[in-house]
């Protein structure tokens, strides 16, 4: 207590105070280093995976020309007269993702517009957990849902000649799965649009729907586009649904009512088998994995670019 009577500078410079500040400083540095290490783990893991993929892929490409890999329309690495054209798998992947997007984009956007612009706080807080639940359903369940419910339903109604395994059902169900990605990211983007713009539109005599569609959606465009691209990225990487419901025959086709294999389905199918370590078929998994990673990377970069390019600053 006597210390308090001294001038502040004296107290701050006392040996105890100096030692205390020193300890405090060391502790801060230690915590900082720990936090950095945690952040670094994710980077290190990602880099390691990429390195492994590249190393095994290089081995693969020493046997198979990169031109054949990128241009041949046949993918039969397990046959005796093996051909290694990734295109059928890429096409299967893009086709199923496209179907998914056609389902998820309109639905997700409408849901987002409703939640952000029309729903009251209580409705929103009730609906959102249910919506998030959609992405919490195990994908293997979705896969069987596509195979055993959606496909028979389509066969019984509009597409009687639909094969049991087809891209369409897998894509539709995958679309349902990614609805929450689109709706919640889009809702965030729309809610970030300042109320001053809504007021401006309403004061012009616009209705709430006109305001939502003509002012809020364009203002949130970068976020909405990023949401769509991130959702595609998620669909491109999805494995179980397509592996179960789309069939596992690589098929160079643009027709979603046929069966086809995606990159992920191929990897899942082959990685489970007893491939000899170091064989070309074994290495083909890594080449396919690298291709998939390149694709999702492109989509993620596109989302990042869209977000920056069309961002409105308020």
């Amino acid at each position: 207590m006597a210390n308090l009577a001294q001038p502040a500078t004296t107290r701050l410079n006392s040996p105890q105070a100096v030692a205390r500040r020193r300890r405090q400083y060391m502790r801060e540095r230690a915590i900082e280093a720990l936090l950095f290490a945690c952040a670094a783990v994710s980077v290190v893991v990602t880099l390691t995976i990429v390195l492994v993929l590249i190393r095994e892929s290089l081995a693969f490409f020493s046997h198979v020309s990169i031109v054949e890999f990128l241009t041949s329309r046949t993918w039969t690495p397990l046959f005796s007269d093996a051909e290694y054209g990734i295109l059928p798998l890429v096409l299967g992947t893009l086709l199923s993702s496209l179907v998914a997007l056609l389902v998820a984009l309109p639905l997700g956007m409408v849901i987002a517009i409703y939640l952000s612009e029309f729903a009251g706080a209580r409705v929103r807080e009730t609906l959102k957990p249910f919506l998030e639940l959609l992405s919490g359903i195990p994908t293997v369940v979705y896969g069987y849902f596509a195979l055993l419910i959606v496909t028979p339903l389509l066969q019984a109604t509009i597409l009687p000649n639909l094969p049991g395994f087809n891209v369409l059902s897998a894509g539709i169900v995958m679309g349902i799965m990614i609805i929450p990605y689109i709706s919640s990211l889009s809702e965030d983007a729309m809610r970030a649009v300042p109320d001053s713009l809504r007021d401006g539109s309403l004061a012009m005599g616009a209705t709430r729907l006109q305001t939502s569609i003509k002012v809020v959606v364009p203002a949130a465009f970068s976020g909405l586009a990023a949401a769509a691209v991130l959702a595609i990225s998620r669909a491109v990487g999805e494995t179980m649904i397509v592996a179960i419901a789309a069939g596992q025959q690589p098929n160079f086709t643009f027709n979603p009512t046929e069966s086809a294999a995606t990159i992920t389905a191929y990897i899942a199918q082959v990685a489970l088998g007893d491939l000899p370590h170091g064989s070309i078929a074994y290495q083909s998994i890594f080449a396919a994995g690298l291709t998939l990673m390149a694709m999702t990377l492109v989509f993620n970069l596109a989302a990042y670019w869209l977000r920056k390019r069309f961002r409105e600053a308020y």
């Binding site: 300042p194 001053s196 713009l197 401006g200 539109s201 004061a203 012009m204 005599g205 616009a206 364009p218």
Partner: peptide, 19 residues
């Protein structure tokens, strides 16, 4: 209210042009 606001316009404190 749509008609009303067409007849009675408003300018706000902070300029709020649409994007």
């Amino acid at each position: 209210v749509v008609q009303l606001r067409a007849r009675v316009g408003m300018v706000f404190q902070k300029p709020n042009p649409f994007p």
